[in-house]
């Protein structure tokens, strides 16, 4: 069977789904951040697949942009988590309800 664009889109959809479910189910803020990275990775696959479809490497450029965005997000997210851990001694989101109360 020939591999088509649909195959790549379905794969990306499943990977995104995995990340989404993980983000909702897991309570460790670090793992939740990693799930976001997985979702971004799924988006990158879609970019690359459409780039291949149109024979235009513009999608590859935007995957590189996405790398930068993911790196910034990881840097700031981890800095915030380290600061939260210093004050509260936990990164479990169930214990971090200050904004909810």
């Amino acid at each position: 069977m020939e591999i088509t664009l649909t195959h790549y889109l379905v794969l990306a959809g499943l990977v995104f789904l995995t990340g989404m479910v993980g983000f909702v189910v897991r309570r460790n803020a670090l793992v939740m951040l990693m799930c976001i990275e997985l979702m971004l990775c799924a988006v990158n696959i879609v970019f690359a697949a459409f780039s291949r479809l149109h024979g235009d490497a513009g999608g590859h450029v935007f995957v590189l942009m996405n790398f930068a965005v993911a790196a910034s997000e990881a840097a700031i997210g981890l800095a915030i988590l380290v600061e939260i851990y210093r004050r509260r001694r936990t990164v479990n989101v169930d214990d971090l309800k200050t904004l909810m109360e």
């Binding site: 670090l30 990275e37 590859h60 790398f67 790196a71 990881a74």
Partner: peptide
């Protein structure tokens, strides 16, 4: 997957930036 899609440069950057830099940062913090 990127390499299969013809994005050889992307595949290299994925290994260097994602699997290398970003995940090392994560492991370091964990």
């Amino acid at each position: 997957i990127f390499a299969v899609l013809g994005g050889t440069f992307l595949a290299v950057m994925q290994v260097l930036v994602y699997a290398g830099a970003i995940m090392v940062l994560f492991l370091f913090v964990i």
